[in-house]
Design a protein around this nucleic acid. Structure first.
Lengths: 207, 207
DNA sequence: TTGACATACTGCCATAGGCAGTATCTATTG
DNA sequence: CAATAGATACTGCCTATGGCAGTATGTCAA
């Protein structure tokens, strides 16, 4: 059991937010995080078993053990104090965005490998963005068709989904652009006649 | 001293990549990560003192102690084996992108707070994106003006900078759009006459 | 009845974040 | 010349987190 004095983190409040929507078992929480939070606050499944315990220890959630036959299960529900802490937290300035993009690390150091590797990486970046767009389109289609999980929160989904779509579309567009640009490269250390300055100027102009 | 059997991580290869460009002291590495890698592979400064040691222990980098008077310093240089491992790693498929966006967590759970908090969060998201655009424009301007730190790698900067610009512009654009949409909301739980379906349809159309 | 999948959860170990601290050099200012 | 601020250099310590692998039980279809 984690110490009650452990501090609350963004993950704590993110899970509190889900508990504010409804009560969940930890297994349900892991599924819901995968479906929603993962887009902008990804967390390891393993830790989603610990966090609700920490919230309960801090008095921000209540844990109730359930049984299905001999198989135990714990259901977590937010407390009034948890709602107040969450409301307070929402009033604090958010931490800066941060992004982990291993594919971009590979592009950035492409000169240590060969052109086929760089292009394969770009193809993989494009494929992942495409797959994510499919998932987002499916989710948005469900919402439009009235199959929303939480209809009373639809306006919030309508606020956040556009951002995710835009990020994935921008990533797909960039990967395609980069594939086109590198098509004329002689090697990863020799871009041939590629107009670097034009690419940089295009960057400033927002092309 | 970390165990030689410790596995290599994306961070290991990212640091190897910087060592492939030139040799660095750890303090120089922390500054360079802040300037470049941080955009797509942010890492805590504290750990950037450990990682080169791990690379040296694994035979992928060489550490040479220097002295300035009585103040010690260690300079790290990539080894031939390190270059080969880096080249191999570049041929592996990249891990999925992931993003931590605390501001979006707050937007997503805005119904637990009030409208002023939501709008303040959106303003802060916009302010940060704007600040980042300024930094990126300055970097791109330097590159265009021939003040590039590594002119022989300019083609790689011209490949990766457009992506960063686009991400920040898309974020700024979205924050402004969200501010406009929420302007007509009665509260965080009542969007008034806001056309949710139109917003969702706009999402699919890429508006 | 069996096997696959769903549900439920933890131990363990490594990586990573972050705060705070100590140490020394350099340059500027009074 | 002395003091101060900033740059350079680094580690201890503690918590948060990722991830693998494992055990356990229920449900359903073949």
């Amino acid at each position: 059991m984690p110490s009650v004095s452990s501090r609350l983190t963004t993950t704590s409040f993110a899970i509190l937010g889900l508990l504010a929507v409804r009560s969940w078992t930890t297994y349900e929480l892991t599924k819901q995080v995968q479906r929603s939070l993962h887009w902008f606050w990804p967390r390891a499944e393993r830790k989603l078993y610990d966090e609700p315990k920490r919230l309960a220890a801090a008095g921000l959630a209540r844990a109730v053990e359930e049984r299905t036959g001999r198989r135990r299960g714990t259901r977590y529900t937010i407390t009034a104090r948890g709602r107040r802490e969450l409301a307070s937290w929402l009033g604090l300035p958010p931490a800066p965005r941060s992004s982990e993009f291993e594919g971009m690390v590979k592009v950035f150091f492409a000169d240590c490998g060969d052109l086929a590797q760089l292009r394969a990486t770009l193809e993989q970046i494009a494929a992942e963005a495409r797959a994510r767009i499919d998932v987002l389109e499916s989710m948005t289609g469900d919402d439009l068709a009235g199959r929303s999980q939480f209809p009373q929160r639809l306006h919030l989904a309508a606020l956040t989904l556009p951002f995710q779509h835009e990020q994935e579309r921008a990533t797909l567009h960039w990967a395609h652009w980069a594939l086109t640009q590198t098509d004329q490269w002689a090697s990863t250390t020799d871009p041939g006649d590629w107009d670097i300055a034009a690419a940089l100027r295009g960057t400033l102009a927002g092309e």
